[in-house]
Design a binder for these strands. Sequence first.
DNA 1: ATGTCATCTTTAAGATGA
Length: 262
Amino acid sequence: MRIATWNVNSMRARADRVSAWLERSDVDVVAVQETKCRDDQFPASVFTDLGYEVAHHGLGQWNGVALASRVGLEEVRTSFDGQPGYGEPEEAEARAVSAVCGGVRVWSLYVPNGREVDHPHYAYKLRWLEALRAEGAARLAEDPRAQIAFCGDFNVAPQDDDVWDMAAFEGKTHVTEAERQAFQELNKAGFADVVRPHAPGPGVYTFWDYQGLSFPKKKGMRIDFLLCSPALADRVTGARVDREERKGKGASDHAPVIAELD
DNA sequence: ATGTCATCTTTAAGATGA
């Protein structure tokens, strides 16, 4: 089974590229983030025309997540237990969708960006990551051999090698101790980054800002992950970042990340 | 040296978020 995660930065603007990528990538399951549309605007045919079932959760112009599978898509959920909301009053956002695909509970997750460390969005981000850890821990407490994949844009660079220059991130989000701690707590709960062992850094990134020619200058960040429960991580035989997809006109600012399972 | 993109809206160029 081949499983991928990709922040497409607008499904409507990226429809043709997503379709072309699916055709050449031969993935069985893909978790998509930042679809940036409501359910009624979502171009489901991009997936269904190629034989995938697809679930989308979008509430407006921001966020939006989808999950496409050609190995089954059952028991769809559009949030996890205790998933925090945002704003005043607090409202749920479209940042999670999941289903059981080929016996694996796969999540497509778009972790809040955090904006600035003194912004309420940053505290929201930390709450969100902690709630995700609790969800994962609860499922593994029920069944330690559960096959669960937390796939998505985590908006955290867990190690210094995951950004092109730590000095450029002084005082910025994505690299703070609290964010890295929250990510590490997910790891400690049993959810391992299954890509890093097959694509070690430095210099392996999944995101390059559109601004300032970041991609040609190799100024990227590794912030997109496939975090797998122990029983699922055991099945991984290979993984890679498809940085080719970041090239050319009309690319998303994120590259797809792909893992191979037996 | 600088350098983006997508979406929405007062439907033009600006504001916003990333």
